[in-house]
Amino acid sequence: MVSDNDALRLRRLVFYAADVDRINAVLLAFVKKANAQSALVIDKEGHMVARQGFFKQDTAALSALVSGSFASTREVARLLGEPEFRVLFHQGQGQSIHITLLGERTLCVTVFSSAIKAGMIQVLCKELAVQLEAILNEAAKRKPEDQEKQNEGLGKNFSDEMKNQLNALFGNL
């Protein structure tokens, strides 16, 4: 039986500033160590959680396409009797991309120059995944009550401001 709170928690993904800062710190250290171009943490729906490094491309599109690519391989994995693949790797002439599943809901994406050995990225990504999973698990285990004490919420006027913003952007279209 799933409690109300659990049901609510399953329906949304909230990242808190402190956790995102820790993720950012780990990502930055990884980017420097691996000499990678950039590293992102995204969720499976394609929303970006954190990013570090140098980006030539639109990260929103990158996140959406990577999550789509990951989702599409799940069916292939199932054909092979796997629940899902945990690592994907696409190698290009100049740039390559390495995708690692973190826990069940998030993905770590590393973009790096093809001059860097993929094996080294693979080893470092494994280390990175362990650290990121630890942060995500710690956040998940935190009691909801502890968080409610410091709950900021989105603000009561979020909805009203949103309407104004929508009218300002698309009012005359």
């Binding site: 909230v14 402190a18 809901r105 956040a139 998940a140 909801p144 968080q147 410091q150 919420g153 989105l154």
Partner: peptide, 15 residues
């Protein structure tokens, strides 16, 4: 999915 934190928390006292 693993349960995720349900309430938002501001960044305080964290690195």
């Amino acid at each position: 999915r693993p349960p995720m934190p349900a309430q938002p928390t501001p960044a305080r006292g964290m690195p």
